[in-house]
């Protein structure tokens, strides 16, 4: 169980190792808190859809497997949308389009296919939790770096007087920061081997 959780955080880190879910990783990480919010939203859907799919997978005929999974995932995403509108409206507005787009996040459908469909309920939940946490940590990291460079702040607290280099919170900064973080990740995992 523990192994499944840590697996998602480091060995199969969805962002840096599997290079999945790039759209939200780039689009929502203008600050550490936004990145974290997006990560947790994905985590919510991942855990629930993994559990639901693990429970029903054996009863689904092979040919309608994918549509069935998509309906289940879309339903949980809509639940998340409604709950966020009700209880975290500010975050919902900031993340905008990327919340409904969790449906097409390759990570969610990927885990459903690769893990949840052939593993028991508890293991699937842990897998969702692990991958979700890995995703959350990566997004928070990217968000923190961009916020620090771009606005001179961290989690909304000003650190550098006079703000930062605006380009890092704009679109190009997203690509460049993620690129360099990946280089760092590669470098570290190389030197470990």
């Amino acid at each position: 169980m523990i192994k499944q959780i840590t697996n998602g955080i480091i060995k199969e880190n969805p962002t840096f190792v599997l290079v999945l879910g790039m759209c939200p990783t780039l689009g929502t990480t203008t600050s550490a808190l936004n990145g974290m919010g997006m990560g947790l939203a994905t985590l919510f859907v991942l855990v629930l859809s993994n559990m639901a799919i693990s429970a029903v997978a054996a009863h689904i005929p092979g040919k309608v497997r994918i549509p069935a999974y998509i309906v289940i995932i879309a339903a949980f995403v809509t639940v998340l949308q409604l709950l966020m509108q009700a209880y975290t409206p500010a975050l919902y507005e900031t993340l905008g389009l990327f919340i409904p787009l969790i449906v097409v996040n390759c990570i969610v459908l990927g885990r459903a296919e690769a893990f949840a469909a052939r593993n028991p309920l508890a293991a699937s939940a842990c897998d969702g939790l692990g991958i979700g946490l890995g995703f959350t940590l990566s997004l928070t990291l990217v968000g923190a770096v961009r916020e620090l460079l771009g606005s001179g702040a961290l989690f909304g607290l000003p650190i550098v007087a006079g703000g930062g280099i605006t380009i890092f919170v704009l679109a190009p900064g997203a690509f460049i920061v993620l690129g360099f973080l990946m280089v760092l990740f590669n470098k570290i995992s190389r030197s470990r081997q």
Partner: peptide, 12 residues
Amino acid sequence: AKASTLTNMTVT
């Protein structure tokens, strides 16, 4: 996964 027939696909 079970074998796919039109009935069970529609029903599921």
